[in-house]
């Protein structure tokens, strides 16, 4: 399994209804994208970090490992904003508003990423998928997603083991060998995926498979107090942003 999903399965909030965590996590993300980056995104960052490291109990190191990925993409993506093309000072030149623009973008993106991570670190995908049918997603699409989720981990494990074996057999020592190895890896993943599907089908056929994958969904009720606290937190972030924006 992947580290974020492992953390989600062992989360303190695992038994909470996914709708509660979606309201909190995605609510913070929407605030980050909708409010002015200064001070809105800063307040969202503070609120999200406080929830993640406090009540949600996410380990700081795990959070940093996951957060640094989107942060890296943001920094790379913000670099072009520092320059302008075809201005009076030549081509290209430093944009006068570039650093401020890039800074605002970094604030917004880092805050929005934390909202998403809050949901991801507390809610396993396997808890979300079966509930999507009730949200109106057609059952066949959810079933395909469930199979993808389950076979995906097996394939990732297989690919990691095959890559290790290729490296042990000097399959990555030269550029040509690396190309051969990665092509073999892709082809093997395809063959294994279809082989797994065929075996799964045989197994399910023996158990009366009628085209619907029935899975047990952990019983959880929506906690109104949690939703009220979420609404209060989001309202406080919005109100504080508007007040600070006027006074700053």
């Amino acid at each position: 399994m992947l580290p974020i999903d492992v953390a989600a399965h062992g989360s303190r909030w695992r038994r909470r209804h996914p709708a509660e965590k979606a309201a909190l996590g995605f609510g913070l993300t929407v605030c980050a994208v909708s409010l002015p980056p200064w001070p809105g995104a800063v307040l969202v960052t503070v609120a999200a970090l406080a929830v993640l490291l406090g009540p949600a109990g996410v380990a700081p190191r795990q959070l940093w490992r996951a957060w640094r990925l989107p942060l890296g993409f943001c920094v790379t993506g913000a670099v072009p904003l520092l320059f302008q093309v075809g201005g009076p000072d030549g081509w290209p030149a430093l944009a006068p508003e570039g650093p401020a623009h890039a800074g605002r973008l970094l604030l917004r993106t880092s805050a929005a990423s934390l909202g998403l991570l809050l949901f991801a670190f507390t809610t396993p995908v396997s808890d979300v998928l079966p509930r999507l049918v009730r949200a109106g997603v057609p059952a066949p699409v959810v079933d395909v997603a469930l199979v993808m989720y389950r076979i995906g981990f097996l394939l990732l494990d297989a690919v990691a083991r095959i890559r290790q074996a290729q490296a042990a057999r000097l399959g990555l020592t030269s550029r040509a060998a690396a190309w051969r190895s990665v092509a073999g890896l892709g082809a093997t993943a395809f063959v294994r995926a279809f082989d797994r599907a065929a075996r799964l089908q045989t197994g399910l056929a023996g158990r009366g498979y009628d085209g619907t994958l029935r899975v047990l969904v952990p019983d959880a009720r929506v906690d109104r107090r949690f939703l009220a606290a979420t609404a209060a937190l989001l309202a406080a972030v919005v109100a504080l942003t508007l007040v600070l924006e006027r006074s700053l």
Partner: peptide
């Protein structure tokens, strides 16, 4: 109905 598993395998392959 059996194509659910093939499509799932195809999606998993794309993910990997």
């Amino acid at each position: 109905p059996e194509s659910t598993l093939l499509l799932g395998a195809s999606g998993a392959f794309t993910f990997v």
